[in-house]
Simulated assay, not measured.
Amino acid sequence: MSLKRLRLGCDVSMVVRVFAASSIGAVVLAAGLPAAEAAGKPISVDFVSGPLNDSFFPPLYKGAHDAAHDLGVKLNYIPIDESDIEASSAQTMQAAIAQHPDAIVVGDFIPNVVDPYIKQAVAAGIPVYVDQSGQDQWRADGAFGFVGQQGPQVGSAAAGYLAKDGSKNILCVINVPGNLYLQSICRGLSARATALDLKSEALELPTADSTDQAQVSRDIGAYLQSHRDVNGIFTENAAVGTAAVAALDAAGTGDRVHVGTMEISKIALQEIQNGKLTFLVNEQPYLDGYYAVLFAAQYVKYGLAPVGAVSTGPSIVDKTNIDKILTVFNSEPDIIGSR
C-alpha cells in the first residue's frame, strides 16, 4: 500500500494557542517541552486513520490538515486499506512508530491488532492519542486521551429515531466485517430496541462486497427478501445508506421501510430532502481530525490534555436542521461530509 504524506508548517499566535487550550475544558499537567520544540523544529504528528475514498474520512483529514496549518504542526497522514484492514492496520502503525514522531494519533479500528502497537509506541516514548474508534481500550493501552463518539450511544439514538417513525423490526448493517466499533453500534441499537419492545437484527456484509455499492444493494435486497418484517434500516456508512435506498426502490418497498445512516454525503443529503432517507448520524469527523491534532500538539508542547473522552457525536441531521448543514456543505468542501 502506498502511504500518503502531508507535511505542513506555519507560525501561530499565542492567542490561538491559549484559546484552543482553554476552550475544551479540564486539563491535566504532565511533562515539559519535546526535543523538536527545544531544537526549534515543528512538532511532528503521524495520524493513522481511514482511506480518503471512504466518505467518512475526507472531513476528518480536512480537520487534521487545518489544525496542523493553524498550529504549525508537521502532519503525516497514513491511511489504512479497508480491503485488507488487519494487515494494513499493523503495517501503518509500524510505519508510524518507525518514524518516531513527537506523537501518534490512531483510529483503533481492530483492537487486537492495533492495541499492541499503541503500547509499543508508548513504551518507546511516543505519546498516543486515540481517535474515532477505540473508546473502550485507550486507557488500558496507555494512550493519553480519546476523541470521537461512543458506538452504543449511536445505536441507541438510531433505534430511538426509527422507533419514533414507527419501525418495529430494525436491521443494522455492518459494512466493515470485524470492526468492533461498528459492531458496538449495532449492539447499542439492539439494546435500545429491546428496551422499547422492538425487534432488531444485524447484517455483516462480506469483505469482498463492502466497497462495491451495487453488490451491497443486492446483499441488502436479498436479506430483505427473506426477512419481510424488517421496516427500519440503519447503516454505518453513507454509501451503504444510499445502497439500502436503492434496494428498497428496486423491491418497491421504500414507502414502508425507514432508513437512517451514519455519515454525510451529497447524495445522502439529497435523499433526506426527497424523503428517501429519514435521518443521518453525524459524528462530525472534521472535529475528530482537528481536535486530535490539537490535543496531540498541546500534550507534546505543554503536557496538557482533556480529562477523559471528548465526544463529537452522535449529532442528528434530518429535515429540521438540514438547511444549515447544506449551507456549510455547499460553501466549505469536506468539512461537513464527502462530495
Rank of each mutant, 00 (worst) to 15 (best):
Y161V: 14
N231R: 04
D84F: 06
L203C: 05
P177C: 07
K276M: 11
K319S: 15
A292W: 01
S315N: 13
I336M: 15
M1Y: 04
T312K: 11
I267V: 14
A208Q: 09
V130H: 03
P51V: 13
F19Q: 12
V27C: 02
F57A: 05
V154C: 04
V154S: 01
V281M: 08
G32S: 14
S83N: 15
N179F: 11
Y286K: 03
I174P: 00
Y286P: 04
I110P: 00
P111L: 13
G166M: 12
Q150E: 10
L71M: 15
Q99P: 01
Y302I: 05
D84L: 10
D219T: 05
S55R: 03
D288V: 05
R228Y: 04
Y299S: 07
G313E: 03
S23N: 09
P306F: 00
V317S: 01
N179Q: 11
V48E: 03
S83P: 12
V154A: 03
C186H: 02
Y161C: 06
V173N: 00
G125F: 08
Q150D: 12
D229T: 11
G125K: 04
E263V: 11
R228L: 12
D323N: 06
G142P: 02
P111S: 11
V154G: 00
G151R: 01
H258V: 13
F56V: 09
G252A: 06
Q183A: 12
E82C: 01
L3T: 10
Y302C: 08
L171D: 01
A67Q: 07
N76Q: 08
R187Y: 06
I24L: 11
K41F: 08
S226W: 02
Q298C: 12
I170N: 01
A296E: 09
G63S: 12
I43R: 00
S156P: 04
I336C: 03
A247P: 09
L60V: 10
G337W: 12
F109T: 11
V293A: 06
A64N: 09
D131A: 08
A239D: 13
V328Q: 05
Q91K: 14
A305F: 05
